[in-house]
Amino acid sequence: MNRENIYFPHLAQITRILPQIEDHKLFGLTFVDKSMKDNFSYRPGQFVELSIIGTGEAPISISSSPTRPGTVELCVRRVGRVTNALYNLERDDLVGIRGPYGNGFPVEELEGNNLLLVAGGLGMAPLRSLLWYTLDNRERFEDVTLMYGAKIPDEMLFKYELLSLLDRPDLRCMLTVDKDEEGIWPAHIGVVTTLFDQIEIDPSTTYAAVCGPPVMYRFVLEELLKRNLSKDRILMSLERKMKCGVGKCGHCAIGYKYTCLDGPIFTYWDAINLPELI
């Protein structure tokens, strides 16, 4: 086989395991092959196929930013066969990585605009990549706002990292929880859409990047549309069963789009044309 075999994973070592919330850990992975380690690049919003040899592969969005090379971070929920097998591994163990796949966020197009990142629950996993990309290239963007809502404080991903951003002058970091029964939450309380009253959106210079559970999209989209944000300035990261990642196996096809090739970032306009999308 003289060309590159698109199905071969590249070996990567688990260099860090940071527990997040229950059944969610952030895995830091470093490619064993030095040139892979040095040259692996990606766009925020792309995903990789994670292989646990002998168990299988699963698509996982990248949570780290390409501005911080060397280690790829995947925030993985323990939920299926592959992720359970990953949770049985320890630091220094090897996994396989193929990718990066998917379109990712159109970061060049976003430059020079205001950015509104809206995340709900686990939707922060792919948006963290865009967040850090933006912060590390801060001069290329105008106002940057993050709205992130979790059910309760104990279910917020990257909680301490995000809380540490509350004081940052160049980011409007709005964190909220639906409920705070213990009375410990230092920020806003209420569902994520309740944050919209606190901000102004200039529809001609703003892009929104949204990721969250299906139920969240409806309400967030409503808020964005009410503020006249155009349908192709609303970007969403969507989940499907992206088995091969390269547009062959068919599992992630929606209408005339493959989530793995044409997505996982879709605009709201795409969603209108692909009724199954959200």
Partner: peptide, 13 residues
Amino acid sequence: YCYDVVDQLNLDA
């Protein structure tokens, strides 16, 4: 052309 992917382990695991 759709396909499914499975890993099959030998007896040595």
